[in-house]
Design a protein around this nucleic acid. Structure first.
Lengths: 253, 253
DNA sequence: TTACAATTGTGTACTTAATACACTATGATA
DNA sequence: TATCATAGTGTATTAAGTACACAATTGTAA
């Protein structure tokens, strides 16, 4: 809490329109053709790309804001979302201030102040997404994880931070229900893990480990028509999956 | 990003003093006599306790704000701090609005708007702390983890969330350098882990595991004068400890 | 039609980590 | 000097992680 003196000063700051702007930045992960993808936007003028994001509106719960923003960019409304960090150092604000100063006439511009951004990452079904550019962008598109472009502001930092958080999640929670189609083969699921971790895994050991989690159902019929031996199809056991999500895997202690 | 229309509306909100207030709430953990402790404050009027916290000041980096607030309450300036979550749903704001409305004359009160709070947890040396009540509190004191009082607002939620985050950290990072005295015995360190986890651990297996991390040095001389067999004294190997902090323990994949 | 390449399914030996438990050693106290 | 509480060390068993090898299936090229 503030002392009374600080309280008055703080209140004065607010009156002088040094206000705080709370925004959301989302790192949207998708998976397609063995590649991990991130949904990015690009403005008309700039070469650099940026993350989907936006302000938290008046009276809007933070999580709802993230859902709304993702709904606008992807068309999806049931999305796995995870808040992972706040980015709010003052240097971010200068760039934002300048950016918005250009967009609005002076008498309508109350955008001096601090910009803090709450980082979320999302896991989505690649085929379910219909990328919608926003007002300021000419492009909204998937980019490969291992071919990421230059990004605006501190968005590269935010995206890397999201990837770290996702990799951490892999160690104590199941992943995949939100990224894979309903049915998939074991090698396909393995490719997802490899894409997230950025390294190869042993085929046989991967299978044993993932099966031991008890979150997969194997269907009777293997997939046919492929160029090689027909692989079995798996789907997630949603009940066990949910249970593993909330309880987490064994862990250390 | 917002559309131009939304941008104007948002800007208008700011002008009408619907502004965002960014505060910090800290869950300060200490360890003393085998008990995990949390530093809490209590107002004169209210029976309920609350977490040390405060607003982020103009131009102040968020992490600095947390450091400043903890400095004021504990007297410490080198503190292990970890941001773990943002709390910002609109219902929080009503209570805050009312609270501050009572404190300031109307013409100085610009406190309508949203209150979001960034949760940090801190690990500190119990003996290094000199608890300083703030302007509004009569008491700033340690409370036992297993005897926590009723708390104001959503502070119970925040504190529980911090404990979850701390327990998670235990699985992939070393803990203890910030909570233990320079030298300590193995049973003492074990009590810390048990206090955090809220369960008993096997003496012998604990020792093997913690030693395998390679972050401890055993001193030549055991501690003397105790009522029983003299235990060895350990201290953290700060170099390996730091390395383990940044790299993390093995993990799952 | 047959050999081959690519891919999938399954199995096994080896190493490391986790768990459960037992014995010995020390130092104050009765 | 016997006893109690606590500390240090060890060992057998089980589970998990790692590193491999081999057989089965299917389209394609010889």
């Amino acid at each position: 809490m503030l002392s009374k003196q600080q309280l008055i000063e703080y209140s004065e700051d607010a009156r002088k329109n040094y206000v705080n702007h709370i925004s959301i930045d989302c790192v949207v992960f998708g998976f397609h053709e063995g590649q991990m993808k991130v949904l990015l936007l690009k403005t008309h003028d700039e070469e650099k790309w940026y993350l989907p994001g936006g302000f938290v509106l008046k009276e809007e719960p933070i999580d709802n804001a993230a859902v709304r923003i993702l709904q606008e960019r992807t068309g999806l409304d049931k999305i796995f979302l995870q808040q992972f960090r706040v980015f709010g150092d003052p240097d971010r604000s200068k760039v934002h201030n300048d950016m918005y100063a250009d967009m609005l006439p002076k008498e309508q511009n109350w955008f001096s102040g601090r910009f803090i951004s709450i980082g979320y990452y999302a896991l989505v079904d690649f085929f379910g997404v219909i990328p919608h550019p926003d007002q300021f962008s000419e492009l909204c598109a998937w980019r490969d994880l291992d071919d990421m472009p230059e990004m605006q502001l501190d968005h590269e930092n935010i995206y890397k931070s999201a990837l770290d958080a996702l990799r951490l999640q892999l160690n104590y929670q199941p992943i995949g229900y939100n990224l894979m189609p309903r049915e998939f083969t074991m090698p396909e699921l393995q490719k997802l893990y490899e894409a997230i971790l950025g390294k190869k895994l042993d085929r046989r050991n991967f299978q044993r480990r993932i099966l031991a989690f008890g979150i997969l159902n194997r269907s009777e019929e293997p997939r046919k028509g492929g160029a090689h031996k027909a692989p079995y199809l798996y789907s997630f056991d949603i009940e066990n999956y949910q249970h593993a999500l909330t309880e987490g895997f064994k862990g250390g202690w």
